Computed example of a mutant assay.
Amino acid sequence: MIEFADTVDIRDIFPHQDKYPTVQRTFTALSIGDKMELINDHDFRPLFEYKFPYDFPGQYEWEYLEEGPEVWRVAVTRIK
């Protein structure tokens, strides 16, 4: 079983523009080696292909834990 330092269910965050800042804050608070769990109702791929590489280059690894169709879960590890 994976131990998470924090879990963010972004389905519950409103308004929409608060979702990514919440993910950023949570990731920034992680120590190296810590993992966070992200939960959403659609794929996280755009986040990890466009936003995270710009904001956190080389600082993370991510892996799918669940790939829809209704729930998407991802583990994000801070590596730097």
Rank of each mutant, 00 (worst) to 15 (best):
K51F: 09
R25D: 12
I79G: 04
I39V: 15
F44D: 00
Y64E: 11
V74R: 00
A5H: 06
E66Y: 05
P15R: 06
Y20E: 06
L65T: 02
T26Q: 07
V74N: 00
F14T: 10
E70R: 10
K51H: 14
K19I: 14
W62L: 03
K19H: 08
Q59S: 12
A75I: 04
T28K: 15
V71E: 11
A29W: 03
D41M: 05
V74Q: 00
E67V: 08
F56K: 02
P21G: 08
I2N: 13
D9W: 10
F52T: 00
E67R: 13
I32N: 09
E49F: 07
K51W: 10
D41Y: 12
D41C: 07
K51D: 10
P69R: 08
E70Y: 08
T28I: 13
T7K: 12
R78V: 01
P15E: 10
W72R: 00
V76M: 05
H42Y: 15
R73F: 04
R45Q: 14
D12N: 13
G58L: 07
E61N: 12
G58I: 07
K80C: 04
E63Y: 07
Q59C: 07
T22A: 11
D34Q: 15
Y50E: 15
R11M: 14
H42P: 01
H42A: 09
L65H: 04
Y50I: 12
T22V: 09
V71P: 00
